[in-house]
Simulated scan of single mutants.
Amino acid sequence: MATSRSGFGALLRAWRDRLAPADAGFPATPGRRAPGLRREELAQLAGLSVDYVLRLEQGRATHPSAQVVGALARALQLSRTERDQLYRSASLLPPQDGTVSTHVPPGVQRLAARLGDFPIGVFTADWTLVWWNSMWSALLGDPSAFPVIWRNLARVLFTSGVAFPVRPERGQDAFEASIVADLKDAASRYPADARLARLVQDLRETSDVFARLWATETESAQHTTDRKTIRHPEIGDILLDCDVLIVPGADLRMVTYTAAAGSSDAGKLDLLRVTGIPAANHSHDRL
């Protein structure tokens, strides 16, 4: 299973050069020396330091974790076959069938990147955030500032111990019940997924609310449009339409926040877009 140390770096460089900046959500600026992504852009997309990406490409960092390889595979918009090749080049086993997939198909990423005027986040079947755009970070805080464990919506919602900054119009109780119902559905479809089982066990042991909802007979949530108020620390409250779009065949949820054109809330989104004011990352409560 072992491969040369330079193989991993060569793959990173080749696939970075292949990916068009526009497909990754970056503007095509004049004076670019190469058609692909810059190293700092790949680092930003993967939530890694530029120095670490450089050391990986040069073969000086030789033992990337599965988490790092997965983040790079998503950032490079690799196919499943290419993703598995990247894992093997790092002497790691590719993700196995029967577990919650963190793979975001390239087409989904290209679509989301072209909708960059609006906050978009992509979640796995267990509600772990695996892809987001710059508007998502501006509205809700930069998820890369926190460990992956705190990018899981259920863990933040039930065990973070801080006030949740998103207030659903249909009520917090209904929102919490829908997330638990989704996790129940995921657990039934992925019984061999150790990470999902550990998440559920942690939540049952640490949250009375989660434990009560888990013990209640619930049906899988049917997500419809909901209006949610986002408490942004600089802009103030923003009332937005929240849609959850299911990606067939990938078991992903694309969450979008939009506002009607010409509304005051659309103006607040415009302000975030133009100024790039990020939501302050005061705690791990912003998803």
Rank of each mutant, 00 (worst) to 15 (best):
P27G: 09
L239Y: 05
C242G: 02
L11V: 08
L12A: 07
A46M: 07
V148G: 05
L245S: 10
S160I: 15
A181G: 12
V247N: 01
R231Q: 12
S263G: 06
V166T: 02
M254F: 03
K184T: 00
R167K: 13
F8L: 15
V68P: 07
A66P: 01
A75T: 05
S65D: 02
G161P: 08
D51P: 01
Q222T: 13
T29N: 07
L245F: 15
Q172S: 14
G249Y: 02
V104A: 06
T218Q: 15
T206Y: 06
R155N: 10
A28L: 14
G276Q: 06
Q96A: 15
A163M: 08
A197M: 11
H63S: 14
I230K: 00
L11D: 11
A14I: 12
A266D: 11
V108R: 02
R32F: 03
T29W: 04
Q201R: 12
R5T: 10
G25E: 04
S91I: 01
R231P: 00
D193N: 11
A280S: 12
A20G: 05
A125L: 05
R155I: 12
L72I: 09
T206F: 06
Q109V: 13
K268P: 00
R83S: 12
P27N: 10
T206N: 14
A75Y: 01
A181D: 06
V148H: 07
R55H: 13
P147Q: 09
R74C: 03
A43K: 03
S144L: 10
P191C: 12
R110Q: 13
Q77L: 11
T275E: 12
L76K: 03
S207F: 04
S4N: 13
A163Y: 03
T225I: 11
A22G: 11
L11R: 10
D243W: 04
S65L: 05
H284F: 14
I230G: 00
L129D: 01
S49T: 12
G9R: 01
A197C: 08
A10W: 05
L272P: 00
D17P: 00
L42A: 08
E41F: 07
A113Y: 05
G70Y: 00
T102L: 09
R212L: 13
D241V: 09
G276I: 08
V162D: 09
W150G: 03
R60H: 13
A61S: 15
L86S: 07
G121D: 00
A2D: 10
R198I: 00
D193P: 11
N133G: 06
F146G: 01
E176M: 15
D182C: 08
R204L: 08
L157F: 12
A90L: 11
D237M: 04
R80N: 05
L245T: 15
G31P: 01
L245K: 02
L45P: 07
L37P: 06
A125R: 02
R55I: 02
T256A: 15
L54R: 09
S264K: 05
T206Q: 15
I179K: 09
R16W: 11
L45G: 04
A197V: 00
